[in-house]
């Protein structure tokens, strides 16, 4: 199985993937819980089709994995690669946010 650069899934145009990773940051969740949590975090509902498109991509790239379960509602969790990728991306966003806010405040002064 070919695995491309995992960071591709976290491009600025891949918000659903970022939301899924962020909701899994504090522990495994199944699909419904991911949808609820991501809406709570972002204020935007995540549709079931969009959610599973993101889950399939993230799983294929090794950023998340399914947790063995007898329940039909299969939970997912971050892999080590997923956690480090998410952390790096969030740090990048934080740096960007600081820089942008600094410019805004500098411009307003």
């Amino acid at each position: 199985m070919a695995k491309s650069n995992p960071a591709e899934e976290l491009s600025p145009f891949a918000t659903p993937a970022l939301l899924v990773l962020a909701t899994l940051a504090d522990g495994p969740k199944h699909g419904y819980a991911i949808m609820q949590e991501s809406e709570r975090m972002s204020g935007q509902p995540l549709g079931p089709g969009t959610l599973y498109a993101a889950l399939a991509r993230l799983e294929r790239r090794g950023l998340i994995e399914a947790v063995p379960s007898d329940d039909r509602r299969r939970p997912y969790r971050l892999t080590g690669l997923g956690a480090s990728t998410l952390q790096a991306h969030l740090a990048q966003l934080q740096s960007f946010t600081h820089a942008a806010l600094g410019r805004l405040e500098g411009g307003a002064a």
């Binding site: 199944h30 419904y32 549709g47 079931p48 089709g49 039909r72 509602r73 299969r74």
Partner: peptide, 23 residues
């Protein structure tokens, strides 16, 4: 199976149906 369980937990409305079709 798990996707079906999700759709049964939360029956999709019109927008969710479009979202599933797009997926």
């Amino acid at each position: 199976e798990e996707f079906l369980a999700l759709l049964e937990d939360q029956p999709p409305g019109a927008i969710q149906t479009i979202d599933v079709a797009w997926g």
